[in-house]
């Protein structure tokens, strides 16, 4: 397993390198001028040119890239144009909030999705199944921004249980986590239902039943380990989803996460900040992928990692 881990980690490097090259090229060819955005609305063309030189944006692409890599190796992610702050510092200040939202969001998804999915599968075709499905569908059809607004309006404004956005209170996380998790819960419910049905129909479960094992024992011993596989895969994919997709949730709740930082960077063509957020989120995504594969092999020893 250690050898596998080492190999995967080494393979992360080309992936990250590839991402940084693509990002670099995309920004370079994007019809948006970082120097112009930096210079602001009334800067003259001369000022823009001077700023372009100051920022090193007049160099050929390859040279800009090697300069960037050279600094990156020393752990220097550069300096945000707009915020006049080291990129690394900005990212590190946002990372804990993003992590909090990811963890609590996944918790909501699992806590809602798995029981609904399991109950639906066991009561297949009957009322609990249909009801569970309806709830799940509501979750997946509700636009997150609107859902967040509704939750805020009802549970922070009309019935003031939770704070109206921000991060100051311990309960601040509840509504963002619900908003972020509700849509995903539907996915987990559907996947759980599907895997449960699949496993229930599988021969070894039927055999176990035939051997006279109790329903609960069969469920715990055979069903869960098998149904868990796609669930774990799904949870691993939640991390990229949360980083890239919860920007709207972060916006509604004034949640200072990485998503908002990345969007801001892209909107203001803040090149070092774009590169920084892209690289760091990519690193997180790739690492979480490795983690998922590892956990999967632990849960289900039939998966071989050695190759």
């Amino acid at each position: 397993m250690w050898r596998y881990l080492a190999r995967r980690l080494v393979l992360t490097l080309p992936v990250l390198l590839g991402i940084s090259i693509i990002t670099f090229v995309l920004i370079y060819y994007l019809p948006a001028d970082p120097a112009r955005m930096y210079a602001g609305p009334s800067a003259t063309v001369e000022t823009v040119d001077r700023i372009r030189r100051e920022l090193g944006l007049d160099l050929p692409l390859w040279q800009q890239y090697t300069n960037y890599l050279g600094k990156l190796v020393q752990g220097d992610l550069g300096f945000s144009y707009r915020k006049q702050t080291p990129v690394l510092e900005l990212i590190l200040s946002r990372l804990p909030y993003t992590a909090m939202l990811i963890v609590s969001g996944i918790f909501v998804e699992l806590a809602l999705g798995l029981p609904i999915g399991l109950a639906s599968a066991l009561a297949r075709g009957r009322l609990p199944d249909r009801l569970g499905m309806l709830v799940a569908l509501l979750g997946v059809s509700a636009p997150p921004f609107w859902l967040g607004l509704m939750l805020l309006y009802w549970f922070a404004f009309q019935i003031p249980i939770f704070p109206l956005g921000g991060v100051e209170h311990p309960t601040s996380i509840v509504l963002p986590a619900l908003t972020a998790g509700l849509g995903g819960a539907a996915w987990y419910a559907r996947i759980m239902r599907s895997s449960t049905l699949e496993v229930l129909a599988a021969d070894y479960v039927r055999t176990a039943h035939a051997k006279g094992q109790s329903r609960h024992l069969v469920l715990w011993r055979h069903l869960l380990p098998n149904a868990l596989n796609p669930i774990i895969t799904m949870a691993g994919m939640d991390i990229p989803w949360f980083i890239g997709g919860v920007v709207l949730v972060e916006q509604v709740f004034a949640w200072p996460g990485l998503g908002r930082l990345a969007v801001e960077a892209i909107q203001t063509v803040d090149v070092p900040l774009i590169l920084g957020t892209v690289s760091v989120t990519a690193l997180i995504v790739v690492l979480s992928g490795i983690l998922v594969d590892l956990v999967q092999s632990l849960v289900d020893p039939r998966i071989r990692l050695s190759r």
Partner: peptide, 8 residues
């Protein structure tokens, strides 16, 4: 997967 959708 790691590539930001928004930028793309």
């Amino acid at each position: 997967m790691a590539f930001p959708t928004l930028l793309l």
